[in-house]
Simulated scan of single mutants.
Amino acid sequence: MGDDVTAAAESVVYADCVHCGEPTEYPESTKGSTLCPVCEWHEAQRNACSG
């Protein structure tokens, strides 16, 4: 059972970050701009301080 789960998880192709090109946590089928966790955090910080 564990091998099936691992094989299914490995078959997902993750999108690249639109800022730095690193892999994201989102599959390529995700619509819109995808960001890696680091760039997502930086973007949130910029938006929080822009008010």
Rank of each mutant, 00 (worst) to 15 (best):
S11R: 04
E40L: 14
A44P: 00
E25N: 11
G51H: 08
A8C: 01
V5C: 03
P27N: 11
N47C: 03
Y26L: 15
V18M: 09
Y26C: 03
C17T: 07
N47P: 00
Y26V: 04
C17G: 01
Y14H: 14
S29E: 09
D3W: 03
S50D: 06
S33G: 03
G21L: 12
A48R: 14
C39Y: 09
C49G: 12
E40V: 04
E10K: 04
C17D: 00
T30D: 01
E43N: 09
C17S: 02
V5I: 15
S33R: 14
E40N: 11
E10Y: 02
T6F: 08
S50F: 05
A8V: 01
D4C: 02
T30M: 12
S50N: 08
V5F: 07
E43G: 01
E40W: 09
Y26D: 06
P27F: 09
E10I: 05
P27H: 07
E40S: 15
V38A: 13
V13R: 14
C17L: 06
S29G: 02
G2K: 01
D3I: 12
P37R: 14
S33N: 14
E43I: 02
E25K: 12
A8I: 02
E22K: 15
A15E: 06
E28P: 03
Y14D: 03
M1V: 14
W41P: 00
E10H: 04
A48N: 12
S50R: 13
Q45F: 04
C36N: 11
A9C: 06
